[in-house]
Design a protein around this nucleic acid. Sequence first.
DNA 1: GCATGATGTGTGTATATACACGCAATTGCC
DNA 2: GGCAATTGCGTGTATATACACACATCATGC
Lengths: 131, 131
Amino acid sequence: MPRCYCALLRKATRRVTSVYDDALQPIGLNLAQFSLLRHIARDEPISMTELGRKIELERSTVSRNVKVLEGMGLAATGSGKDQREAIVELTENGHRILVDGAPLWQAAQDKIEARLGTDASAQLEDLLLAL
Amino acid sequence: MPRCYCALLRKATRRVTSVYDDALQPIGLNLAQFSLLRHIARDEPISMTELGRKIELERSTVSRNVKVLEGMGLAATGSGKDQREAIVELTENGHRILVDGAPLWQAAQDKIEARLGTDASAQLEDLLLAL
DNA sequence: GCATGATGTGTGTATATACACGCAATTGCC
DNA sequence: GGCAATTGCGTGTATATACACACATCATGC
């Protein structure tokens, strides 16, 4: 029986996520939260739907994850001209924690790259983007 | 800013998981459940801790996921000689659904392999195992 | 035999994720 | 202008996942 790509991916994701989560512990965020924060920063202010489209996450998932950041005081939500839209942007603390977290994230990134080697890391990136 | 390996992995995992989940829909299981069922089948009867060790999942996560399978009538739990251990094995229906699901799983597997090509698929497998 | 430390479990809590529903606002068509 | 279809959202529900705790059982040293 050949290996299941999906099971392999899921296991690798668990492992790698824990490396990043550990690295980000000093700022009290996990990788998913840090990543979401970065995406918001890149396009703020942005609506939930648009954010979900960019990061390929279910809209309701985005809403809930944003709510966690909001509870931490890192993001703030409101509504735009279109009263249906819920838009989110970062607070000052949100921006600051991105700066503080950058070197922590980089350390995790380096750790993974060291684990695979430079060439293999680039290969992995290509393959994941092709999926 | 280089790409985050972890975010890439997580996104790819979401995408791929949904391919397998869709494929397995006829048997009413998702990939995580199907995969867990297969692992149990390979080593049954097996304790939660041992199962978690093999698939690199938190023990308590294994317990809860097994409970779902148990609720579906696909697995049964009990305790071994060591009264602390909770052991699990498949029911008849559990074994049957593995057979029914095999071609569905294979179809998803083929779809992913087609998406990447044979060589890249093998590469991906190697890289994921190296993580 | 018994106290102690080690081991195995389940539960509580929190986040990540998806899907189905129902509600509110906007847009389009006459 | 008004009604229907579209769009955007939050909530309910369910699973996957991890970590911290508390409890039960086993193994060991004496």
